[in-house]
């Protein structure tokens, strides 16, 4: 890792990764739930760009459509409903154990990083096929070798659907 040739690709990817890391910190540290959510949206969009850089364009675009387009909109929706109903709830009290938690985070990062990252030192050439992330490859695999997990996920989504309707309805 010490004598790594600095290529334009590395600069671009490193910059995006740095921005994503800053956005992740923002999610945790912003006291305002809306700002946290916006940081998370930024993080997800940057992650999608990183997925594109890994040639996984199908999953990158799914990331934008599912996470930023649906899940985060749902989050914003709920935050705004709460903001409309009881804005005082969104002001958080500071947690007394936050310094301990941050210390724990630093230790976790250091520990796992020091054990994990050196093991992949020097790996900088992708081995997979360049079109391994295209819609054709994913569709073929998903509907042949992974058909059963796919069906299981569809059942899971159905259960989630029924569950959320049950929770949302006041009277059935």
């Amino acid at each position: 890792m010490n004598n790594l040739p600095v290529s334009p690709n590395l600069i671009v990817v490193g910059g995006i990764a740095g921005l994503a890391a800053v956005a992740a910190v923002g999610v945790v540290l912003f006291n305002n739930a809306i700002r946290s959510a916006m940081c998370l949206v930024l993080n997800f969009v940057l992650l999608a760009v990183l997925y594109f850089s890994l040639n996984a364009e199908m999953l990158g675009i799914t990331q934008i459509a599912v996470y930023t387009g649906a899940i985060m909109v749902l989050f914003l929706f709920v935050i705004m409903l709460l903001n409309l109903g009881a804005p005082q709830l969104l002001v958080e009290k500071k947690d007394p154990k936050r310094f301990a938690a941050i210390g724990f985070g630093v230790v976790l990062f250091g520990l796992v990083g020091s054990q994990l990252l050196p093991a992949f030192n020097g790996v900088s050439t992708p081995q997979a096929l360049d079109d391994f992330g295209g819609p054709h490859a994913i569709g073929r695999t998903l509907f042949s070798a992974y058909a059963y997990p796919f069906e299981a996920v569809s059942i899971l989504l159905l259960v989630g659907l029924v569950g959320s309707i049950l929770l949302a309805k006041r009277r059935i």
Binding site: N9, F120, G122
Partner: peptide
């Protein structure tokens, strides 16, 4: 992408995971 070490992505992943863990611990909302 060519010329980008695997460690960049892994490091970001680890960092985001840690941030998530810390967030779960310190946030109350």
């Amino acid at each position: 992408m060519n010329g980008v070490p695997l460690a960049v992505y892994l490091g970001l992943g680890l960092f985001m995971f840690t941030a998530g863990v810390v967030g779960v611990m310190i946030r109350r909302n």
